[in-house]
Nucleic acid binder design. Structure first.
Length: 683
DNA sequence: GGGGATGACTGGC
DNA sequence: TTCCAGCCAGTCATCCCC
């Protein structure tokens, strides 16, 4: 949770304090330190935000989220408390080993530059309207602000703040509507400058970029600082706008550095390990890209981690409670490591449109919104030459609860007609509902972006046939999934709400007008049947291979890969629903070195008594199931399935309607974003 | 058991 | 007067099918 230092210690704040100053426990992002916000009366900002939010649906939802997070923190604290000295020393050894491995990857040979335009949208607006100069101004609307100039920031006004709250904080605030055409134009001008220093620079957004200036420094015998100075001057000459820069041996730190002397400044971190470690030692964790308000809150409240150095010092706890990839990320941040190689060009993964409106239950209105969104999305996809297979409907209810519902189709679509047809079906299953936002997202794009006919996932390509080795497995899986999709397309059109309402009527009209797609579906189904015999053969071969592989797996617990261990570790923690309880008579024989499960390799410290009990039960249940399955009559209905069916009281109804997921807080590892596969922001 | 589909959630701008 | 966006990418857990 991003909050001011004085409000971040919710654990230590007394009850008396919270009753006198309730806003102090209302965690908003608006008091988080941002460039130009030094000297802001944070308590006043927090009080105003609290007063204006109190009692609203938004506020209630924030409280729900807060309560959920507190529960999560409590769970993690309980896990921490269970760790004994021997556990901690065990995990410390793991951290030490990993630190050495990560340290070996340190590359101090590159010089990275991160450029960040100062209050970009606001600066562009001031450039085109000089009368705004010196006045507090925000780009955006009464409902949401995109950015604010430095005059407005002095009042606590900032990006992602609702305009009406900003107005309260700064009554003289001038609002300017967003104009992306203008921002794109100026962004292009800056990029022409960047190109002169690194032709392969990475644009992180309209106003941010990463440049590898190693080559230009060498060729022109200049330091990183000198290049940054010159580049900033050239950006100013080309646009009339100022920017800030950070120079460091890796992208992660370059981004942190560019924020230090904002606006119109720069900071250079030398390519020297000692300097990096000193820099990192007092750096607040929230400054790191990838550590947001939730992760910050958890790290502070559970482990009392505030600086990047603390991440290393508390490494053993992090290793014990987080997934290996998350722990790796935290350790590498503690060591001041980040990306130094040229980031790979990533293709677009999804495309979406969403619109917010006043909360309503009006189904005709929902449909009209769907029509608009489908048309917008279709137009965007056509522009990008994209065809997608997965359509996701996003809904935000009147109480700010976000739901997503997705369908993956057997064929690629792009037309507004097809998008609308499937979106209507997804929405219909959610009615009646009061909504304040509807969104549509397409994903699962075809690889062929060169136009022409979209590739059909049902079609066997030449490559499929000739691909050797492991590729065969992929072919089998693809075919299975395609046939399943065909089946669903043909059989799962029974929706939960059969009433003949507005949407269903329109739905039928659309379906009947979408003949081509239906014909394609029939065609695919025929194709699918043709391949069924081949698939059965493949499955037989696959199954026989699996059984022998399983035997080897059980006897060789030391050869488990990290990923596999992680997976099994999760199973160990989450297997608790259908397994019968059992005595722990196997316990003394299960744990290698008192940590590692002999059967699957999962690591659990001896003090995690309940978890280990559950884990033993899990393996026992597995064994029971194997025994049961050895009797032919039950082979087609494994234990889990039978129990579930009995529980539901219905047979054969599970298909087409998945159960809602359990809360992720039940799992051992909390999800942390973009750790090593960095996002564009988190390079 | 593996992998695809799905949904919730986090993070950045 | 107004009353908390829109877009994208990624991780993780769970369900389900083969």
């Amino acid at each position: 949770m991003a909050k001011s230092e004085e409000t971040s210690t919710s654990a230590s704040s007394s009850m008396a304090d919270s009753s006198l100053r309730p806003w102090q426990s209302y965690h908003t992002v608006y008091t988080n330190a941002k460039a130009g916000m030094d000297g802001v009366d944070k308590e006043k900002v927090q009080r105003v935000v609290y007063e204006m939010s109190k009692g609203s649906k938004y506020f209630e939802n924030e409280e729900r989220k807060e309560a959920y997070m507190k529960q999560k923190i409590e769970n993690m604290r309980a896990q921490c408390a269970k760790l004994k000295a021997t556990d901690i020393s065990h995990y410390q050894r793991v951290v030490d080993k990993r630190s050495v491995e990560l340290e070996a990857t340190r590359d101090l040979s590159r010089i990275w530059l991160h450029v960040d335009m100062d209050a970009f949208y606001a600066a562009v607006e001031t450039l085109s309207n000089p009368s705004l100069k010196g006045r507090p101004m925000a780009v955006g609307s009464m409902s949401m602000i995109s950015t604010a100039n430095y005059e407005a920031r002095k009042f606590g006004v900032r990006a992602a703040m609702p305009g009406f709250i900003a107005c309260k904080l700064c009554p003289e605030l001038v609002f300017v509507p967003t104009d992306f055409k203008k921002y794109t134009y100026y962004s292009d001008l800056t990029r022409k400058v960047y190109q002169e220093y690194d032709p392969n620079f990475t644009a992180a957004s309209l106003d941010e970029a990463y440049l590898d200036i190693t080559k230009v420094c060498k060729e022109r015998s200049m330091t990183g600082g000198e290049v940054a100075e010159e580049l900033r001057l050239n950006v100013y000459k080309a646009t009339g706008l100022t920017c800030s820069a950070g120079v460091s041996p890796n992208r992660l730190l370059a981004k942190v550095c560019s924020d230090i002397n904002k606006p119109n400044g720069q900071f250079v971190l030398p390519n020297d390990r000692a300097a990096i470690m000193t820099f990192i030692s007092s750096l607040p964790i929230r400054k790191i890209g990838g550590i947001g308000k939730v992760t910050e809150h958890i790290l502070k409240d559970v482990f009392e981690i505030k600086t990047c150095e603390d991440l290393l010092q508390k490494g053993s706890f992090l290793c014990a409670l987080f997934s290996p990839s998350s722990a790796d990320f935290f350790i590498s941040v503690g060591l001041g490591l980040g990306g130094t190689d040229a980031p790979q060009v990533r293709s677009r993964k999804s495309m979406s449109n969403e619109r917010t409106f006043s909360a309503t239950k009006d189904e005709a209105f929902f449909y009209q919104k769907l029509v608009e969104l489908a048309e917008m999305l279709s137009a965007d996809m056509e522009k990008g030459g994209l065809y997608g297979r997965t359509l996701t409907l996003k809904l935000k209810t009147a109480s700010f609860e976000v739901r997503t519902r997705a369908v993956t189709l057997q064929s690629y679509i792009w037309s507004s007609k097809d998008i609308l047809k499937h979106a209507s079906k997804l929405l219909k299953a959610e009615l009646p509902v009061s909504l304040r936002l509807i969104g549509l997202r397409m994903s699962h794009f075809n690889e062929d972006k060169g136009g022409g006919t979209p590739s059909d996932p049902m079609q066997r390509t030449l490559l499929n046939f000739i691909k050797p080795g492991d590729g065969n497995r992929e072919i089998v899986d693809e075919e299975h999934s395609d046939i399943k999709d065909s089946y669903e397309e043909a059989h799962c059109h029974a929706y939960t709400n059969p009433s003949h309402d507005h949407l269903s009527e329109l739905d039928q009209n659309i379906c009947s007008s979408s003949d081509n797609n239906e014909k394609a579906a029939e065609h695919h189904e025929l194709e699918g049947n043709e391949y069924k015999d081949q698939i059965n053969e493949d499955t037989l071969v696959e199954n026989s291979m699996k059984s022998s592989a399983f035997d080897a797996h059980v006897t060789d617990t030391h050869s488990l890969e990290g990923k596999n261990q992680d997976h099994l570790r999760r199973i160990g923690f989450s297997a608790n629903e259908t397994e019968p309880s059992s005595s722990n008579h196997e316990e003394p024989f299960m744990w290698l070195d008192d940590y590692k499960c002999l059967l699957c390799g999962v690591e659990l410290p001896p003090s995690f008594v309940e978890e280990r009990q559950e884990h033993s039960d899990f393996h026992l249940a597995e064994k029971l199931q194997e025994e049961e399955e050895s009797g032919d009559s039950y082979k087609k209905f494994p234990l889990k399935h039978r129990m579930m069916r009995q529980k539901e009281g219905v047979v054969g109804q599970s298909k087409g309607k998945k159960k809602q997921k359990h809360s992720p807080s039940n799992g051992k590892h909390i999800p942390i974003d973009a750790f090593f596969t960095k996002t564009s922001q988190n390079l």
